[in-house]
């Protein structure tokens, strides 16, 4: 039987990547300029590609077909952090998308840094070899995501008054949910604690704030909803409704 602790870790990884990849993909055609549209499109593809690889590991453990795991599980079964399911802004990708680039950059930076640390920990210390190897491979791509969003963070912080204000608003909004990222269970597969993760994350992010003269948000509230335990917002239900709409019409069929 599969160790439920390993399965939970894989679900957390897969669901995090799929949900943020979905949100990123909603920006297609709507990014601030054409070059960014292309770059952000790459990042969205990477995330969905990573999710696919994690779902395949679950599939290899006999837990179901990767597409079923991605498209058919309900919100209460999802293990992604709530931060990643929040919409990109008002409206939807189809109707009046008043998407917020300030929030998008702040959220991506918070998540990319967290993900980089998480993957490093798995690559170097996970006792389940297929996952350790996959994490090592994925880290190489995630490095560029982090670099991309650090660059955006600086540009917005040092751009105009408006861009700085919008970035700060995005950071504040991100910090409301960011604590939920760190709710991870220590194990042989993930040999670290939430506190150690958070400490490392803070140690790496804070100098970025100092460098552009932005105040470090002192408060990171405990998450109101624990996404890792299946507690989610209505936004995730709506996202899953959209994502599985076509697949659910004929789940066993070839598409």
């Amino acid at each position: 039987m599969t160790d439920p602790i390993l399965a939970l870790l894989l679900y957390q990884l897969a669901d995090d990547e799929l949900v943020i990849g979905h949100r990123d993909s909603e920006w297609l055609g709507l990014a601030p300029h054409i070059e960014e549209d292309i770059a952000f499109g790459s990042i969205a593809q990477d995330e969905v590609g990573h999710a696919t690889a994690f779902y395949r590991l679950l599939s290899d453990l006999g837990l179901g077909v990767a597409d079923d795991l991605a498209f058919l599980r309900g919100a209460a079964e999802r293990r992604n952090a709530v931060l990643l399911e929040r919409p990109n802004g008002a409206g939807t990708y189809l109707q009046d998308p008043a998407f917020d680039w300030g929030y998008t950059v702040a959220r991506r930076l918070a998540y990319d840094l967290f993900d980089a640390i998480r993957l490093e920990c798995i690559a170097s210390g996970c006792s389940y070899q297929p996952l350790a190897q996959l994490a090592g491979k994925i880290r190489r791509e995630e490095r560029y995501h982090l670099l991309h969003h650090v660059t955006w963070f600086k540009r917005l912080a040092e751009g105009t008054e408006e861009s700085r204000r919008r970035l700060v608003a995005g950071i504040e909004q991100t910090f409301l949910d960011a604590g939920g990222l760190f709710v991870m269970t220590p194990s042989d597969y993930f040999p670290t604690t939430s506190a150690a993760l958070l400490e490392r994350w803070t140690a790496e992010l804070r100098p970025q704030f100092d460098a552009v003269g932005l105040p470090w948000p002192l408060v990171m509230p405990a998450p109101a909803l624990d996404g890792r335990a299946g507690q989610h917002t209505a936004d995730l239900s709506a996202l899953l409704e959209t994502m599985g709409e076509v697949y659910r019409t004929a789940p066993g069929a070839a598409w």
Binding site: H22, L28, Y93, W255
Partner: peptide
Amino acid sequence: KEWVPKAPTL
């Protein structure tokens, strides 16, 4: 791109 969020398989 309207169909990316609804594409039926990974």
